[in-house]
Simulated scan of single mutants.
Amino acid sequence: MSEQVPVPWAESRPLPAYRALLAVDAKDFTGLPALLHAPVSQVIPELVDQALTKAGLDSVRSDKSFPASTGDGIVFGFDPVHLPFVISPFLKVLDDVLGRYNVLAAGPRIRLRASVHVGPLPDADSAGDGNGTARNDTHRLLDSRPVKAILAASSEQTTHLAAILSDRVYEDVVLGGYTALHPDRCIEVPATVEGKPFAQRAWLHVPSPSGNLFRAGVLAVDEPHEAGVPDEPSPDPAATRDSLQKSQYQGNSQHVREGMAVMGDITGDLNYNGGATHYNGTNQHWGSGDNVSGTKHTGSPEEQR
């Protein structure tokens, strides 16, 4: 006989241990011929495990909590002590592993979205392990508009992974300085999911942004175009705009040193506007890598930061 269902707020009880979560899924999986679904489903966890080993995270690979296949991806929990290393170097290593696979494999390209979150979840070798709000939010982040839109807008030749970090992970691990990923390589985005009552602040990180994002105006580049080098196809602005329609952005200014940055709705040639957020083509904060061009103003003049 199963245990009696607990009644929330009726009594105090022990908080489950915190578990970090990693979820990945493949772009355009359902568009593949049915014949390819099974082999692609099999190769995704193999590529993730390969990247874990290359990143020096064999303990995460061997000690996954409540691992599960989602058909077009996987999700599993792990000890939060490893979160800094999953953020860096693992995400970059996974991007490299995917890039090498896509060059050498005879099958379809595999491009992934990844979400990273942390929260209290049961993990006691029982049927309900891994079920809870933190698990649900991990999947919502994975399905959110910003991470889908930027992967769709980027070049499949160079951008193989787009990752989204929950605000809790960003605050504790990235801002806390525990990981090698600098905060300037992340950008605040409104994580919303079409048709779902979900809206959270989150942080987008793309390990290898592609050149067409520069030309579309998402990123700024200070190098002249080489004569005779063909342009990569520009992203479809209408499709990208639709994928982020009605997203509302509120947050702090981002000073981007490396990586790429996206915030708010995508309109036109990937110019970003999110409610009261506006971008002007000046006053960029430069660092040593890829940057977002423009200045963000939020709210009224008195509230602008």
Rank of each mutant, 00 (worst) to 15 (best):
I164S: 09
R215C: 09
E302F: 11
H37M: 00
V86P: 04
D231F: 11
Q250Y: 13
R201C: 10
Q254S: 13
S144W: 00
P230Q: 04
D143N: 13
L121Y: 02
F198T: 07
R201Q: 14
A227F: 14
P108C: 07
A127G: 14
L175D: 13
G128I: 07
S288G: 15
T133D: 10
N252G: 11
Q245H: 15
D49K: 01
A20V: 09
G287M: 07
G130M: 00
Y101V: 08
G71T: 06
P224Y: 09
H117P: 04
E194L: 10
D72S: 01
P45E: 01
L22K: 05
A216L: 07
V206D: 05
R113Q: 06
I266Y: 12
H37N: 05
V75P: 04
N273R: 15
P89H: 04
S126Y: 12
S41K: 03
T138L: 04
E303L: 13
G132C: 10
Y178F: 12
L104K: 15
A105K: 10
D143Y: 00
A10I: 11
N271T: 13
V189Q: 03
H182F: 06
L22V: 01
A152P: 08
N212D: 08
A162Q: 06
S234C: 07
S166I: 06
R13S: 15
D222P: 01
A127W: 14
D129S: 00
I110P: 01
I74Y: 04
V174E: 02
Q200P: 05
R113H: 01
R100H: 14
G73L: 08
P16F: 06
P16R: 05
D236C: 10
G251T: 03
V173Y: 08
R185T: 15
G294E: 08
V206F: 03
A191F: 04
D172R: 09
G264Y: 04
P224S: 07
S247K: 09
E11A: 12
G251W: 00
Q245D: 15
L175S: 01
S144E: 03
S293F: 09
M260A: 12
L83M: 13
P190T: 11
H160T: 06
E223S: 09
R111E: 02
L112M: 06
G275T: 00
L142G: 05
V206S: 05
R140W: 10
S243A: 15
D265N: 15
